[in-house]
Amino acid sequence: MSDLISAPKTSDKPKDSPTFWRKYQGMISSIGSPILLLILWEIGARTGFLDARILPPPTAVAVTIWDMIENEQLLQQTGVTALRFLVGMIVGTVPGIMLGLTMGLFRPVRVALNPLVAILYPVPRIALFPLVLILVGLNETSNIIMIAIGPFFTMLITAMGAVINVEPIYRDVARNFGVKPRQLYFTVTLPAVLPAIMSGVLVSLGLALLGTVAVEFLVSTKGLGYVIWNSWQVLSLKQSMAGLVVAAILGAATYIAMDWLERWIIPWQRTVTKR
């Protein structure tokens, strides 16, 4: 045995090859793990290790998705869900942001409305559904309200907190350099709170999707949530699973879109981690 400590052997390969791995490492491993899971699932279902009637293999689900696309049922249902989700998201986040900013900026408004928020925010939202149905009626409006409530409160609280927590030094700098109080809002407050608002929107996306599927489970006769729930009730598990997969794809797609939007809206936030 030798006590010699030697430098690690340098690879014989050309220097370019490890950089390829390094460059795409993140992407390969993030795609790799779900694919591995799907392969294991497929093998399990085919070898009988998993009961294919309860957990149909991914290929069977894929075939079902294709069939459902062919008879035009799936695209239509997806469209219904996507539209509800989008409208609910906008109806919830935009007023939530506006009211949150207002409450953050103006103390009297905050003092007046905070107790209301404190009472309403912790109520389990799904428990409000019967009340909304009674007040608004069994229609699309009440569905949208249910989807919008989560994003609304999330954005209200995020935006208000962000305004209150703006570093005072930013306002001091702006004031010292002669920015007028009226312009303070656009030069300092808004850019300073944007990162927090963007992460609030990301949270709201998840809540809105959850709300959409929940509403479709409960009252709707259309949409992916309806497909998932209804197929499950008639024990058509392949179709239920197909609906689930499409809902997951819808969710993932919005996250990717948001990520892209975030890089565009707050370019100064991401720059370090991207290197």
Binding site: I169, Y170, V173, N176, Q269
Partner: peptide
């Protein structure tokens, strides 16, 4: 005024 380093606007 020249403030401390955190006075630079990150955006």
């Amino acid at each position: 005024m020249v403030f401390q380093e955190q006075g630079v606007f990150p955006w």
